[in-house]
Structure formats: structure tokens, C-alpha cells
Design a protein around this nucleic acid. Structure first.
Lengths: 129, 129
DNA sequence: TTTCACACTTACCAGAAGGTAGGTATTTGC
DNA sequence: GCAAATACCTACCTTCTGGTAAGTGTGAAA
């Protein structure tokens, strides 16, 4: 069934932006690549906690979205570079104020998150008991 | 085990910001409340597709994060207003450039998303066959 | 007397996101 | 000959997110 045209109609640009940069790792990858191109292994080492699966999966999606490029140097052992496109840099720029906001209020956010988790834990303990 | 202090160390403010505004609905709620306070039912009607469960759940989290306020007028039938705080407005302001970016590139993003889904569908069909 | 609207709450369920552990092919170093 | 390093790929499993459907209490409208 080739529908070919679901307008998708996002109610605001934020929804569209979050499709590109949503999820647990994409902003980190974006930020890490912001300072220059990196090899796959360098990326993995610079983003602590990320699994290889998540890294390539996200890199592929970001490549498909045109915010990073993949360059295979066809060497052996393999050497592959990932770099940000101009599109990616424009996204980074748009993200900067949000990043600054987060940094500015990081303690407040952290405190709220902490309190939230404490509440959840208390709830769980009540249920378990 | 009262840990009391996990530094949580976000690697950039974006992570912190996305904790507050991540998920499927929060940006929409934020945007909808941006133009003024609304009752629970009004919010539900203005955000098409949202379930009551998700709406209160998100509203509660946003209240805990200090970006909206809940005002119960203690009437019957119940009347409850939700409004944005100054903190919430500052978040909205920080979100504006990202929103503009999304709006500017909405067609490109939509096309990528469409292509991605087509690829996924093709993959699924191959597996099913 | 039944029904409706209001603002929720609860229990259950499906799907997506993410994590773990293994395997691939090639060459260099020991 | 064997292990290591490179950039992946694959299958399986767990956790988290979000959706559905039903129920709650009160007063007013039908």
C-alpha cells in the first residue's frame, strides 16, 4: 500500500527536532562530534557507557538524517571517520541555548530528579511490603 | 542504603534539559500552556491524541520539576488550572531556537523519517517472507 | 432515576528502546 | 600459531514508555 503522503503534521518544530535528536545518546554523540571528526573507536571511548550497538545504530540514523557523514578509508585494519555536516552544525547551534539552560539549572534539575526517584522508591517499597 | 549524593554528572546541559522536557508529550504540553493557563479538560482537548493518563502523569512530573503550577479551586464539579511558572517560561525561551530549527527543516526531517520507515518496513517484509 | 461532566486513579498490556554477549574478516605483532 | 585490534553484525533479553479500559465521587441536568 504505497500511501506516499502522510502529512505527519507536527504541531510545533520541537517535535520534528526531537525526532532527529531524541533518545538517550544522540545529543551526546552530536556534542562529541562537535569539536571535530572522530573514528568509531574514538567515539566509543569518548562516550562512557555507550554500547557498540547503540553507537552504530545512532550513527546510522544520524547519517540518514544528514547530520553526520561516514568516511570509510578502505584500509585494513578498518578505519572509518565520522564527521558533522553543515546541517549538523546548524542543529548544534539551535541546541546551544537549551544546553546553556540545562547547565544553568543543572543543580535544580538534579535535585528534582533525585526527589522524584526517592518518591518512586518509597512507592515501590510500600507495594512490596 | 542512603546514598544521598550521586553526582549524576551530566556531560552537557542538554542531558539535564532533556530530563525535564523529554518524552512524547512534554514539549506539547509546554507549548500549549505557553499561551496561558488551562484547565485539565481544556488541555486534553487541545492536545489531540494524548490520553488522560499521560496528561496527568506528565503534568505531575512537570509540577514536581517546577515548570507548571496546579491550582485546585475546590469547586464541585472539580475545577483545576494548570499554568506555567517563570522557570517554565525560561525553558520555553531556551527551546525556541530548537523549535525554529525544527520548523525550518521540517520537510527535510519528514522526508528522512519517511525514508527510514520505508526501509524498516522493507526489512520486516523480507524477514516475514 | 438515570445520565453526564469533571478531574482524576488503577490495573493490565503491547511495543519500543536499550543492554549483553557472542561472531565476522583481515592484518600485524609476539 | 595465537592473540589483539579494527569496525561492525546478530540474536536474545530486560526495562521503560505509552495506550486502553474501567472505576471513583459529587452535583446538576434530563
Amino acid at each position: 500500500m504505497g500511501d506516499g503522503s502522510k502529512p505527519r503534521q507536527y504541531s510545533c518544530g520541537l517535535e520534528a527536532a526531537l525526532e532527529v535528536v531524541g533518545g538517550k545518546w544522540k545529543v551526546l554523540i552530536l556534542w562529541t562530534l562537535g569539536s571535530g571528526p572522530l573514528r568509531f573507536g574514538e567515539l566509543r571511548r569518548q562516550i562512557p557507557g555507550i554500547s557498540e550497538k547503540m553507537l552504530i545504530q545512532n550513527l546510522k540514523e544520524m547519517e540518514a538524517d544528514g547530520i553526520v557523514t561516514r568516511t570509510d578509508h578502505k584500509e585494513v585494519p578498518p578505519r572509518v571517520d565520522y564527521a558533522m555536516t553543515a546541517f549538523g552544525h546548524s542543529l548544534c547551534a539551535a541546541l546551544a541555548p537549551l544546553c546553556a539552560w540545562g547547565q544553568e539549572h543543572i543543580e535544580r534539575i538534579d535535585a528534582c530528579r533525585r526527589a522524584h526517584e526517592a518518591r518512586e522508591e518509597a512507592k515501590r517499597e510500600r507495594v512490596d511490603a
